[in-house]
Simulated assay, not measured.
Amino acid sequence: MPRIRNWKDLTFYRPAKQTQYVHIDALFGEPGRNVIDFDLIESQFRHLMRVAVSVREGAISSTLLL
């Protein structure tokens, strides 16, 4: 069974505002908040992949990127 260490310090995100979970809904904060912004991810996906490939191929180090 997988475990998450220090889960009280984490912020959990819902896939949609209306998503509700029976037993773990309190972990996500108040309803309608902490929702994944899929439009933002889609608009920046190309740039994210460029960075990921550059790090994987060794063109740039992850520490330099940060």
Results as ranks from 00 to 15, higher is better:
19 T>G: 09
59 A>P: 01
47 H>V: 01
37 D>W: 00
62 S>R: 07
34 N>Y: 05
42 E>L: 07
45 F>L: 06
59 A>S: 06
1 M>L: 02
60 I>W: 07
2 P>Y: 04
20 Q>Y: 04
61 S>C: 05
27 L>I: 08
53 V>G: 00
7 W>N: 09
13 Y>C: 07
32 G>V: 01
63 T>H: 08
24 I>A: 08
6 N>T: 06
42 E>Y: 06
5 R>K: 15
1 M>N: 04
17 K>V: 08
9 D>F: 00
23 H>I: 06
26 A>S: 13
38 F>S: 07
9 D>L: 02
13 Y>W: 08
47 H>P: 02
20 Q>A: 09
27 L>A: 14
45 F>W: 04
37 D>A: 03
24 I>G: 13
53 V>H: 02
66 L>K: 15
24 I>T: 11
17 K>S: 11
62 S>E: 09
34 N>V: 01
61 S>Y: 06
64 L>N: 14
29 G>I: 00
25 D>P: 00
22 V>E: 15
31 P>G: 00
46 R>E: 09
46 R>W: 03
57 E>L: 13
8 K>I: 01
27 L>R: 11
63 T>P: 02
51 V>Q: 07
17 K>C: 08
33 R>Q: 07
21 Y>L: 02
9 D>H: 02
22 V>F: 14
17 K>Q: 15
31 P>F: 00
31 P>S: 00
1 M>D: 07
45 F>Q: 06
35 V>G: 01
46 R>P: 02
